[in-house]
Nucleic acid binder design. Structure first.
Lengths: 233, 233
DNA sequence: TGACAAAATATGTACCTACATATTACCGTT
DNA sequence: AACGGTAATATGTAGGTACATATTTTGTCA
């Protein structure tokens, strides 16, 4: 970072970013070669490469071998989402976390679950329904299916003390993740569980994880009315 | 990637990732120093550094100078979201894109908008309401506020042909972005516009952008019932 | 014992070199 | 003009060296 002599890759990145912001380069425009930029700024090509890689990761520019670097013609809004363990999310908001197991039983997986996993045939799986509480009030209801073939240990866990959310995230790292967000209306059961009005609009966060090709779990996290999912800071 | 002789940073990354997956290293555990891993795998430390950086970016591992590298004690689910221009999103689904301006006028920004921008005092802004269509049917209703101080050009644009979404994304790159997702119930006006049942649950994608500290725009993209936002592939 | 300074140490960055790889561009042939 | 093969070229990656930087650990002195 040597603010004096040498240029850091962040400085190079910011300088190029700024040239895009100010319109020096617009959507679709081609930027100079890394080597030329390096000479211009009198730094190493590897420094420019690092800067460009970062701009590319953030979706601002596109790089192709031999094709060079150009500002994305059709920009995308790209953001990183962090979804912590629910307990942590509650505690970080300054509230007291509570947890309550609603139901735990084996059952044949419904078609939606089988489809989420991309499996051929339906099969029995472990269904765990539980409620996360914030300061004693309902916060998130989770409706989860766990594949017992992939995680045989779950047969011996009752999930009364520790949530499946927490156990899985600590003990079952995944190699693939699918996320989807959508809205549903609270039916009478959900309204009852979440202490919400029937028909209230609820944000649902659906997560499915695999380890290699083996399905681990799929969960619908059904939030209480007013819940917001944020990115960034 | 020379699958034969040398080890690529991706291979190094995957090998370490696998050791975490298989439980060789669990949450909170400290990994060997980069230099030792490099020696083990007989590759350069810079290659290990690259691999570790990637694992760190993906949230699996935490690195601290002198502290070393350790598996995150409280893992987070981290994912990258790409939100394209609405026109592109529709076209990519194979449907015909349509656009319809509903209203465009200057108005004092309501408190919610002022708060989203982190401004002190309310001020007049340009409000643009428009409907995006997919195969002639409502797809997303966007309710947008644009700051005319930051983008004076908008005074001369009528947004009848090109959507504000598209114009802004092509002409107003941002340096900061805030995203939030939540669910609302359709009121009668929204139900009418989106051809949905009154009270239907709708996913809202709210986006606010700045260039440096200057607010550009804030928009609520109100989706039609059944809309799902996906990550990854 | 406690506070503070100094040494030790693991990661972060910058530079340079040498190839690898993916594409585009060019040119000759038909 | 269309096709196809080859050369040219910009980015991607690996290796290696030398420092920079941030912490933790250790050590010293009051």
């Amino acid at each position: 970072m040597t603010s004096d002599s040498r240029l850091s890759w962040r400085e190079v990145r910011d300088r190029i970013h700024e040239q895009i912001l100010t319109g020096r380069y617009g959507p679709g425009d081609r930027l100079p070669r890394d080597a030329d930029i390096a000479e211009d700024l009198s730094c190493a090509r590897s420094t420019v490469q690092r800067a460009m890689q970062d701009l590319s990761d953030s979706g601002l520019v596109e790089r192709r071998r031999k094709g060079g670097t150009r500002v994305r013609a059709e920009p995308v809004t790209r953001a990183t989402l962090d979804i912590p363990i629910t307990r942590r999310e509650v505690e970080q908001s300054g509230a007291r976390y509570g947890y309550q197991l609603i139901r735990r039983r084996m059952a044949p997986a419904p078609r939606g679950v089988v489809a989420a996993f991309g499996l051929g045939a339906p099969r029995p799986m472990l269904r765990v329904e539980a409620l996360h509480l914030s300061d004693g009030r309902p916060y998130i209801f989770e409706d989860r299916w766990i594949c017992p073939e992939t995680s045989p240990e779950v047969q011996n866990l009752d999930f009364t003390g520790q949530s499946a959310n927490e156990w899985l995230v600590l003990n079952k790292p995944y190699s693939r993740l699918d996320l989807r967000f959508y809205a549903i209306s609270a039916n009478t059961r959900l309204a009852d569980l979440l202490e919400a009005e029937p028909g209230a609009a609820l944000l649902v966060i659906e997560r499915t994880t695999w380890i290699e090709d083996a399905p681990i779990t799929t969960v619908k996290a059904i939030t209480t009315p007013g819940y917001q999912l944020l990115t960034g800071t």
